[in-house]
Design a protein around this nucleic acid. Structure first.
Lengths: 303, 303
DNA sequence: TGAGGACATAAGCTGGGGTTATGACTGATC
DNA sequence: GATCAGTCATAACCCCAGCTTATGTCCTCA
């Protein structure tokens, strides 16, 4: 009946871009020209998209095409996919970036994963042609790159600015206690206490990750983190384990937006503990960012 | 040099899903089996993806494959695209849904656009096989459908529950004053006053939209909304005009997350005005939701 | 009434990505 | 140390989705 694979049920990127172009330009032909194909190709592509979705998307007339009601909705959903693809593209380009790029960025995993692609998209819009290269690693590695002159600008999350670097706060992150909806904590009425959290076996990243360091420090005054229930290598693996009901964890709110919104994870309020941490741009002391590095820095600090 | 089109620079959904499967399963062959292709096909697909991105993604060995550092990052970015595609798919399926679906939902545009797809993904995970159909329209249309028995559950944003319906708050939305970063308001130090906002010509949706009604009501006590600078038919068009510097607007925070994060739009704080509005699930008075409608309602209210 | 723009239809070609078949390598097991 | 059960790579073939060019139909406007 309906195909099992997502790719068979969602039009490909070229088709979605074409649809956005039709919405914007109000004509199949013009949209075709803009996307570099011929008008019959565009006509066919939209038609096959309508067949795939089982809904008619555009109202054709001899003087142009406009979206149907369903088409408006589909176009908006499509825009989300295209935006994610743009972020992917900007990130991938930076990853491929050669050493001689004009702007060499080093970033912690969390920032590289969730924030940097968006910044790169914005930078590309504002300063087209800026070649960016990206290296991701933990705070120590970022600091090392900067001190060695192998990167122009760094981004780290954590409690303090690494030695030898200057920095500016560009945002903040909060660690959140999460469980599966079925976990007993999800039905508590009172917030969790710091001691309770410290005493509970958690699912965590391996020792050395930024998240775990912050948690360690915050709980030091409350008896210290107890032996983990499970130690996993990636945030994704931790999330999967928690969603599967293996136990509670503490994760960056950046990492769990989707899961909270859809109810796969539940946030457990914590009473007497501040789990905020600053996100910082950093650079070697005395080398205030200039040129493209300054542009990127400006972006991350708002207008 | 590098291709102009996004679709030529971002792997297609099938390839991204394959990459996620490789990350999860640790083997090209197993990932191939899971995604319904043969091992050589998977091998080739990953290879061509690496060629396209110019980065090697997986470390192959005679006893399995693991992601490289770059591969981890790329996989995480890819996951965002796939999640957006899942939301698209869930939404599209509901849009196509026939009248005899088990659960007929009517929703306002804003909710259908930004929140419902996520809920449908979650519902699909929790109650597989629930056939959902979706109709989007304004509050009045949603109420009409419910009263006529043509929908089982509705979602509206606005000040009050429409007559003849009962409801429950499932979330809240906030209207936000936004401008392009270059606009004078973006450099203000003091918050904007309600009178100032009322007096300013804005870019708005046409009369009748939910957003505009709320704004009208909120400013009624402050001299009333002044003549719009521009009236456009869709939220997208309004956003584009504001980003382009045509003037300020007031939009739902749901609609502008992306733009704020990337700095294309700037939020202007408003001092003496509450622009919150409730998002509500609604149903005909006396017909408390049961079955699948109850399941969906439960999802939207958190655990 | 003719010109111009919009979309649809038809016929033909091409290449990306699939398949099967096979080989090379590693590590575990007897 | 030979065999086997995994892994991934390579090679040869094949197919069809989606492109192009060429043309037709319809509407609108001058």
């Amino acid at each position: 009946m309906t195909d099992r694979r997502l790719a068979d049920r969602v039009p490909d990127l070229a088709a979605l871009e074409l649809l956005l172009a039709v919405a914007r330009l109000g004509s199949l032909g013009r949209a075709a020209r803009e996307t570099g194909i011929t008008q019959p190709a565009a006509s066919g592509r939209i038609r096959s998209m309508e067949r795939m979705l089982g809904v008619s998307l555009v109202e054709r007339s001899p003087r142009g095409s406009t979206l149907t009601d369903a088409g408006v909705l589909v176009t908006d959903w499509a825009r989300r996919i295209v935006e994610a693809a743009e972020a992917f593209d900007a990130g991938a380009e930076a990853l491929r970036g050669r050493r001689d790029s004009r702007l060499r960025v080093a970033a912690s995993m969390t920032i590289a994963e969730y924030l940097l692609p968006g910044w790169l998209v914005a930078l590309r819009a504002r300063r087209p042609g800026t070649a960016v290269s990206l290296i991701a690693g933990n705070s120590a590695a970022v600091a090392e790159r900067l001190r060695a002159g192998e990167a122009d600008l760094g981004f780290v999350e954590g409690l303090a600015v690494p030695a030898g670097l200057a920095g500016a706060v560009v945002g903040s992150d909060r660690l959140v206690v999460v469980t599966a909806p079925a976990h007993p904590w999800a039905r508590r009425r009172a917030p969790l206490g710091a001691e309770e959290l410290a005493a509970a076996p958690l699912i965590l990243r391996e020792r050395g990750s930024g998240t775990r360091q912050v948690l360690d420090a915050a709980l030091a005054a409350h008896g210290g983190l107890s032996e983990p229930l499970l130690e996993l290598a990636s945030t994704t693996a931790v999330k999967a384990a928690v969603v599967g009901g293996a136990g509670p964890s503490v994760l960056s709110e950046l990492a769990i937006g989707e899961e909270l919104a859809s109810g796969r994870l539940v946030e457990i309020p914590v009473g007497d503990l501040d789990l905020h941490r600053a996100l910082r741009a950093v650079w070697p002391t005395g080398h205030r960012p200039t040129g493209p590095a300054r542009d990127l820095l400006a972006l991350t600090q708002g207008p």
